[in-house]
Design a protein around this nucleic acid. Sequence first.
DNA 1: TTAAACTTTCAGTTATTATTGAAAGTTTAA
DNA 2: TTAAACTTTCAATAATAACTGAAAGTTTAA
Lengths: 168, 168
Amino acid sequence: MELTEAKHKFIEAWGKLGSEWGINRTMAQIHALLLISPNALTTEEIMETLSISRGNANMTLRDLIGWGLIEKQHRAGERKEYFYADKDTWNIARQVAKERRKRELDPVLKVLEEISKVEGDPKDPEFATFYKSVTDINKLAKNVDKTLDTMLKAEESWFWGSIFKIFK
Amino acid sequence: MELTEAKHKFIEAWGKLGSEWGINRTMAQIHALLLISPNALTTEEIMETLSISRGNANMTLRDLIGWGLIEKQHRAGERKEYFYADKDTWNIARQVAKERRKRELDPVLKVLEEISKVEGDPKDPEFATFYKSVTDINKLAKNVDKTLDTMLKAEESWFWGSIFKIFK
DNA sequence: TTAAACTTTCAGTTATTATTGAAAGTTTAA
DNA sequence: TTAAACTTTCAATAATAACTGAAAGTTTAA
């Protein structure tokens, strides 16, 4: 396997994985590109490498900054903006977990909490089944939420160390 | 909050969450509907409740069976097929984790493994950065994989018990 | 100021994904 | 067999999401 080919495959695979998990392909690909790039890149270079338009590149870079995955870099005497990615995988994982929790898990928890308050006759199977499913899911969601919380605060080694104690 | 409204909100929220995580809205909604339904439902009833076409209902129900989330039920003396969902949230979580691992994580692990074999000059920053990022991600992915493995084998109480030991 | 160098915006277009609906297929009972 | 009751398929269509490109906006240096 040759470096250029390997880079391609990595960007492809990352883009595909992203799109399967609700993150748009271009965002995942730009992120992948910056991850394996030793130096910060300009919008121009990114557009060129991934064959995407200026508009797309610009908007996606801004999204990535919003996700806390990349940052702008300014160079003395240059007008251009350079972009680079945090390369620490643990930070990346945490950042993604943090954002998705905020954007997606939190709202659902709120709805679950709200609809858990539904009132009805416990003898009515319609009510009983609804209530049980919703409260069960609510419990699971809270567990996930707490675990994410630990993860967000944790050092990588400590977190995985703890996880691996599970295996004993 | 009244039961009918609460049901609506649950189906809506579940559908939205699904679509944000790469699971199509209808699939999540049918699953939600069956989850809160005390008895098995026919295609007809599902079509009607969610206002979807027969084709869509049929295909999505088949997908859900493929995900191991629902099952068919036959009733003596009846031609119609009834569908019902496993209501155990822990089973649901495991089933989803299992399928997504198989469909999405496994292929990526394979690619990462493959491109980790890339050869090059460790002094070349292009190579060095690529190699480090890819091997780091590979390690993280393997950790996730192992944790999923534990989860798949675990009893709910045991798994969360272990997780919560993390908090001490 | 001006203009070059750069970034941002967004209406219009394209690509992707999901859905419909009607026809074809299957099963069962008489 | 036939036909009613039901399920499956899939080409056509609709809905949604992503992307383009050009124009407008901004910043900087002379």
